[in-house]
Write a protein that binds this DNA or RNA. Structure first.
Lengths: 147, 147
DNA sequence: ACTGTTATTGAGACTCAATATCAAAAAAGG
DNA sequence: CCTTTTTTGATATTGAGTCTCAATAACAGT
C-alpha cells in the first residue's frame, strides 16, 4: 500500500509545463520530504535518504528542493549559520513563527487579522503581496518563568 | 570635524560590561557601518574599508559585525545565496520590508497597528516578543504595470 | 517496443561566506 | 615599565550549495 504524497500532482504538472521530467529521484525526494512533518534542512534529507538506502545524490536533493521551492510546495523558514531550514506548505495551512531565544522552541501561529492587515498595508503601497515570512523572536512562557 | 557615530556609546558600554576592549579596528568598523545608510553586507564593508585605506582585516570585520549584532545595533535583514544582509537599527526606526521579486526593489514600511497586533498575538501565547522580522514578497507597483 | 532527442543524474571538483588558528601586537592596570 | 589578557590579522579550514560533464534515463514519435 503506497500513499501518494500530497503535492505530487502539483509537482508533476509544474515540471511538465516547463518541459522537465518526472524522474525516480525526484519522486523519491518528494516522498521523503512529504513524510517530514515540520521543519527540515537539505543536508538531513540527504543523510536520511542515504541511511534508508534511497538512491539520490546530494546534488539531486539540492536541485529538487530548489524546484519544489520554485513550485511553491515548500517555503524557506529561516537560515541559520548551518544552512537553510524549510517547511512544506502543502496540506499545511500558512502560519508564522515565534522563536524562543532561550530554548529554541518554535511556536506556530496564525491570525486572520494579521493577514488582512498586511494586505491592507500592501495595497497602500501599490504592492501585490504573494507570500511573506514573519518571525518573532523572544522568550516563551516556560523560559520567562525560569527567570 | 568628526561626527560621532550613533550607537558608539551603547557599543562601548556593551563591550566594557563584558570585559572586552574598545580598539581602533572596532571603532573604525563601527564608523564605517554607521555611515552606511540602508542595507549592507559584511564583505562589501570589508572591501570598502580596504579601498579607502582603513585598516581592518576580514576577520575583524566579521567579528565586529557579530558583536554589533549581539549588542542589538544591527539586525540581520535576510540571507541570500551570497551571504547575509544587515541593516543598522540605531537612529533608524524599526520597520519591515517588502521585496519585489521582479526588480529586487525593497520597500520599507511601518505600521503601529501591525506592531500592536503582533504584541496581542504574543501575549495570547504567553510569549514575550523582543524583535521580529517581516518580509513580504511580491510585485511592486511598477512591475505590476509592466504586465 | 525501438530510436533519437534532450533532460537528468552523480561523483567529485569548485565557490565563497564565514570561522578557527595562533603567533605577534596592543590595551588595561598596576 | 612590566605583566596579563584581549585583539589582531594572515592564512588555513570548514561547510553549504553549485557546477561539470560523461554516462544514463525519460519522453515523444514512429
Amino acid at each position: 500500500m503506497k500513499s501518494v504524497p500530497p503535492g505530487k500532482k502539483l509537482f508533476s504538472s509544474f515540471l511538465r509545463e516547463r518541459g522537465q521530467r518526472i524522474t525516480k529521484e525526484r519522486t523519491l525526494i518528494l516522498q521523503k520530504i512529504s513524510s517530514c512533518s515540520g521543519h527540515f534542512d537539505p543536508e538531513s534529507i540527504y543523510m536520511q535518504m542515504r541511511e534508508t538506502g534511497l538512491k539520490a545524490s546530494r546534488a539531486s536533493v539540492y536541485r529538487t528542493i530548489n524546484l519544489m521551492h520554485e513550485c511553491g510546495l515548500i517555503e524557506r523558514v529561516r537560515t541559520t549559520d548551518r544552512g537553510s531550514i524549510y517547511e512544506s506548505t502543502f496540506g499545511h495551512k500558512h502560519h508564522d513563527h515565534m522563536l524562543c531565544l532561550q530554548c529554541g522552541k518554535v511556536i506556530e501561529f496564525y491570525s486572520d487579522e494579521l493577514e488582512s492587515l498586511q494586505e491592507d498595508i500592501c495595497s497602500e503601497q501599490g504592492f501585490q503581496g504573494k507570500s511573506h515570512t514573519l518571525e518573532i523572536r523572544g522568550f516563551c512562557r516556560k523560559c520567562r518563568k525560569k527567570e
